[in-house]
Measured scan of single mutants.
Amino acid sequence: MDVFMKGLSKAKEGVVAAAEKTKQGVAEAAGKTKEGVLYVGSKTKEGVVHGVATVAEKTKEQVTNVGGAVVTGVTAVAQKTVEGAGSIAAATGFVKKDQLGKNEEGAPQEGILEDMPVDPDNEAYEMPSEEGYQDYEPEA
């Protein structure tokens, strides 16, 4: 019985440690998101679009440190934060509304985080759909 109880105690310690790591990862992701939003706020009209992409990228980098179902929630929060940063930029006159959601080359930025393969159960990952990809044929 002692062996059984000791095993359960060790398992509990492992769960607590994993929860603490997840909590730490979420806190880091939130900190990076805040950094990115402050970065966007300090940019001029020309830099705002690039700044919004930076927020998304920093958040995406930190999301990889967070495991399990938390990833889905962090990704949703990050996307809403990026959308909010863009709205703030438009409201303050840093950028025109028609410039939001495009990178410096004018290509749409939507789907940055949505296409990231995420499995809350950590069982399997699927690649994003290939609808947006084109076949590449090298020139002879």
Rank of each mutant, 00 (worst) to 15 (best):
M1C: 00
M1A: 02
M1D: 02
M1S: 00
V3R: 15
V3C: 08
F4I: 03
M5Y: 01
L8I: 00
S9H: 04
A11M: 15
K12W: 10
G14K: 11
G14D: 06
A17L: 07
E20P: 00
K21T: 03
K23P: 01
K23W: 15
Q24A: 02
V26W: 08
A27L: 12
A27I: 14
A29C: 13
A30E: 00
A30P: 02
K34T: 05
E35Q: 09
G36W: 12
G36P: 04
V37C: 09
Y39A: 02
V40L: 15
G41P: 00
G41T: 10
S42P: 00
S42N: 15
T44K: 01
E46S: 06
E46D: 07
G47N: 15
V48I: 15
V49Q: 15
H50A: 03
G51I: 15
G51V: 11
A53T: 01
A56L: 03
A56H: 11
E57G: 09
K60I: 12
Q62W: 05
Q62N: 05
Q62H: 06
T64L: 10
T64N: 08
T64R: 08
N65Y: 05
N65T: 14
V66E: 01
V66C: 07
G67W: 09
G67H: 09
V70Y: 06
V70M: 04
V71H: 04
T72H: 00
G73Q: 13
G73F: 14
G73A: 05
V74E: 01
T75C: 07
T75A: 14
V77N: 03
A78D: 00
A78K: 07
A78T: 08
Q79G: 10
Q79A: 06
T81I: 13
V82M: 03
V82K: 12
V82P: 05
E83D: 06
E83K: 11
A85Y: 13
G86Y: 05
G86N: 12
S87M: 09
A89Y: 14
A89E: 04
A91S: 05
T92L: 10
T92V: 08
G93I: 09
G93P: 08
V95N: 15
V95Y: 05
K96P: 15
K96A: 14
K97C: 13
D98S: 09
D98Q: 14
Q99F: 12
N103G: 12
N103K: 01
E105R: 06
E105G: 09
G106D: 03
G106L: 11
P108H: 05
P108W: 05
P108A: 09
E110M: 09
I112D: 05
L113H: 07
P117C: 11
P117Y: 06
D119L: 03
D121M: 06
E123I: 15
E123S: 08
E123V: 12
A124K: 09
E126G: 05
M127T: 10
M127S: 12
M127A: 12
P128Q: 06
S129L: 14
E130F: 07
E130W: 13
E130D: 05
E130T: 05
E131P: 14
G132P: 03
G132F: 10
Q134T: 11
Q134F: 03
D135W: 06
D135N: 14
D135C: 11
Y136R: 13
P138I: 01
P138L: 14
P138E: 10
E139F: 09
E139W: 13
A140E: 12
